[in-house]
């Protein structure tokens, strides 16, 4: 990216951040559903779930809750991008001598910031619910990097949805399957308790690897191959979503 493009991105990120700051309820709403789920699982279902470990259940399922937080948080990006496309703002931006990629990156960077805040809120409540991690500073940094990479990859998927949607509802509908994915993973119950076909899917979908590595990081357990499986999945998804986004953006704005 050129200096001018970075400058454009900074200005448009400022614009997009202001959207969030003007309606902070969007962040709170994003965080509330996962928090409610977490409390429900910990205090209602948790006692009946056998994770096969002596760790507290909140520690077991927090990574899955964080994945759900991100999956629902990125829907805001597609909503905002849909508004830009449908309300003429994108036409105005495109008529200016500014970098085209800044029109997308402004939303993407804002999504990273907003999701970071939502994740911190959820982790804060997890502490209140008895989450006591045994993670070193390095573990925390690695966990943060993994969460950031997850947010980035899912945000670019949200960009595709926002650019191609025909209605507001369509713009955020893509996030429902993403929110369901953690349930068919090792996030809440061990996969060996599932019927074999479901278990096979659960073990081979990216959320399981991501959740497993987050869990290892937060409990200070030894890292296994899951971290590399997660990173490979996320980089692959990110690259694919980014390429498709640019393709959709180009075809939607060519005419």
């Amino acid at each position: 990216m050129s200096i001018a493009a970075l400058h454009d991105t900074r200005i448009l990120t400022g614009r997009s951040l202001r959207h969030i700051l003007r309606s902070p309820d969007t962040i709170i709403t994003t965080a509330i559903t996962p928090i409610a789920m977490m409390l429900l699982f910990v205090f209602v279902f948790g006692g009946a779930i056998n994770t096969g470990s002596s760790e507290s259940y909140v520690k077991y399922m927090l990574p899955g809750i964080l994945a759900i937080t991100i999956a629902s948080g990125v829907a805001y990006t597609s909503y905002r991008l849909f508004l830009d496309m449908s309300e003429g703002m994108m036409l105005r931006l495109r008529s200016l001598p500014i970098s085209r990629s800044s029109m997308l990156w402004g939303h993407v960077l804002t999504s990273l910031a907003a999701n970071a805040v939502s994740l911190l809120l959820v982790i804060g409540v997890a502490f209140l619910a008895g989450f006591r991690p045994r993670a070193t500073v390095l573990d925390w940094l690695a966990a943060a990097a993994l969460l950031l990479l997850t947010t980035l990859a899912l945000t670019w998927i949200a960009v595709i949805a926002g650019l191609s949607a025909k209605t507001v509802d369509g713009a955020s509908a893509f996030s429902y399957p993403l929110i369901l994915l953690p349930f068919i993973s090792s996030a809440f119950v061990p996969t060996d308790s599932m019927p074999s076909a479901v278990a096979w899917f659960a073990e081979n979908q990216p959320i399981t690897a991501i959740v497993d590595s987050l869990r290892s990081l937060l409990t200070g357990a030894a890292l296994d191959a899951s971290i590399w499986v997660s990173v490979a999945w996320l980089l692959g998804l990110l690259a694919a979503a980014w390429v498709v986004s640019l393709f959709v953006f180009r075809s939607k704005t060519r005419g």
Partner: peptide
């Protein structure tokens, strides 16, 4: 694009920003 500016047929305004902020945004860009 550097040598022209366009006002389209349909309004293209950021509804979350005030009128002044909309103009400042354009001026910065």
């Amino acid at each position: 694009r550097e040598s022209l500016s366009l006002t389209g047929q349909f309004a293209a305004i950021d509804g979350v920003h005030t009128g002044r902020e909309n103009l400042i945004l354009l001026a910065r860009l």
